[in-house]
């Protein structure tokens, strides 16, 4: 509990104060990350010696074939899972030593998620789904904020529909609104268009990058869609659990 006290004694920075060291801040720092699963007597190493770091505002994609470990890497980066060795530091917080509940706090505060299969809560309406991260923080009167976000993804008038009453593309747009609702520092997207047809996928992609640009969020996309990967500034390729290349994308080079 030491860090909580430490946190409490930290001077609070109020909104609106201009902070000038943002440009050099590391938002995600991965050092020598490995993940090994034990199944009976056998050991299966799915990630080994992965290191990279992202600055605030970066966009980056992790690409690789099926089974290369990219989803595992995403899970570790986002604090959904614990690494076997190495460290994950998110927004200055070492995730490795935190309990699951502490990591949940970190996710709620700093992380946004977009999933391949949307993962909306089926018993909540579109609006309520968007409200959950805010409500989890204990914020009140969040309906207006959530409606604004739904408006941004073009679903304001369908706010009282349940996920099953929405198409795949619509569900993913709700999920976008939800991901941005808690104003995350970093957003993880796992195959965001994997379950959508090309046309819908492109629309969702467009929305994702627009919203991201507007909020200045750090974005990590896991995909095997190279076209999508090219739209981020940086591409990390992994294969067999190892990073095989970490290069700026052409768009970035070109841009």
């Amino acid at each position: 509990m030491g860090f909580i006290n430490e946190h409490a004694s930290r001077p609070k920075v109020t909104k609106g104060i201009k902070i000038n060291f943002i440009t050099v801040t590391t938002i995600l720092d991965i050092q020598n990350l490995s993940k090994t699963y034990h199944s009976g007597d056998r050991e299966l190493t799915v990630l080994e010696g992965v290191s990279f770091s992202l600055q605030a505002g970066d966009t980056c994609s992790i690409v690789g074939p099926s089974g290369s470990g990219k989803t595992t890497l995403l899970g570790l980066c986002a604090g959904l899972d614990r690494s076997s060795t190495g460290s994950v530091t998110l927004n200055g917080i070492r995730l490795d030593n935190l309990s699951e509940d502490k990591r949940a706090q970190v996710r709620n505060q700093y992380v946004g998620f977009i999933f391949q299969n949307f993962q909306l809560i089926p018993t909540l309406t579109a609006l309520e789904n968007v409200m959950v991260p805010l409500e989890l923080r204990g914020e009140r009167n969040v309906q207006k904020q959530a409606m604004e976000l739904l408006g941004k993804v073009g679903l304001a008038e369908r706010h009282d529909h349940y996920p099953t009453q929405l198409s795949g593309g619509e569900q993913q747009r709700v999920s976008l609104a939800r991901a941005f609702s808690n104003k995350p520092s970093i957003l993880f997207a796992d195959e965001p268009t994997g379950n959508l047809d090309e046309e819908t996928g492109e629309k969702v992609e467009g929305l994702l990058f627009d919203l991201n640009r507007e909020a200045g969020t750090t974005l990590v996309v896991v995909t095997h869609d190279l076209e999508l990967a090219e739209k981020t500034q940086r591409i990390i390729r992994i294969k067999g659990g190892h990073v095989i290349s970490d290069t700026p994308s052409h768009s970035n080079v070109a841009g």
Binding site: F3, I4, E6, H7, A8, R10, V13, K15, G16, I19, I22, T25, T26, I27, A56, G57, T89, N91, G92, I93, R94, L98, K102, Q105, V106, N108, Q109, Y110, E135, L136, R137, G138, K183, S185, E214, A215, G216
Partner: peptide, 24 residues
């Protein structure tokens, strides 16, 4: 105008949220 989040120092764990029973 975009407002950037403050990237805190090491271990800047967010404040522990309340249980918030009415919302639960």
């Amino acid at each position: 105008m975009i407002e950037y989040k403050e990237p805190g120092p090491i271990n800047n764990l967010p404040e522990k949220p309340k249980l918030n029973v009415p919302w639960l």
